[in-house]
Amino acid sequence: MEQHTNEKIDAEAMEKKKDAKITVKFVIIMVLTLIGGVFLGAVTNLIKEQGNAEVVWAILEQVLAYAVPILFVTMNLVAMVVGGCICHSARKKAAKWDGEDEEWIDKIEKQLNYPILIVNGLQVLNSFMFALNFYLWKIIEEPEWQRDVIALGGLAAYMAGLIGGIILQKKVVTLEKELNPEKRGNVLDTKFQEVWLESCDEAQKEIIYKAAYKAFKATNVACMVMWIVSFISMLTFDCGMMPVICVIILWMVLNMTYSISCHKLETGNSKN
């Protein structure tokens, strides 16, 4: 009885210690964020007041006008070649699989995650590069040929990246389906993710849910950081309210979707 009471007291003390640590960590983060925000604001304001920002931007725009179209095409080419090679190597390994060696097949499965990582990263980077490309197209007035190169090159690279990404994803999914015959889904189908999830069993669903929760937490932090950046930009670079509004919409969708889904799952009103 006495031992049980002592264990309870120890557990409570440990819990209090843990809470205190969390509180200290939280306060430190808040103070550092505040200091960082003030510092960034002061520096950017100084640049603006001295009038150097415009010169820096003008030089940067000229450099980017030449670099971006080349970078855009190269980035897609490299990603496709690397992703394609990994996929090809995995297929060759799969052809050699005797159906028994479990370590061998686990290695192939792990290898197949990389092309998907490349496709997902490339999709976001391509969207950014596409916008940057047309931003440069808009601000550069001459020479005319440079504007044509930026517009056509950007459009071609974006389309190539999009089609290449789909082909790469299709190759991975086809091989994954060959290795795991229970898997379903066609990457060209708009409901691919739902069909794929439906064909996953409990262990794979748990992986997907855990990964999604990590993504939620990371996005929440990213939203907070981007809100600070967009807020400072609004005050110092005259970017207007648009960046702040965009971040707030994303943040709101993220948190509301999470909270509403949690509420529905807790009350048993969700289909998923």
Partner: peptide, 19 residues
């Protein structure tokens, strides 16, 4: 093998491997 075990219990080879 893992694939056959998965089929017997109605799950995937990957889940058997993870367990």
């Amino acid at each position: 093998n893992q694939q056959e075990m998965g089929t017997l219990v109605g799950t995937s080879r990957q889940t058997i491997s993870q367990i």
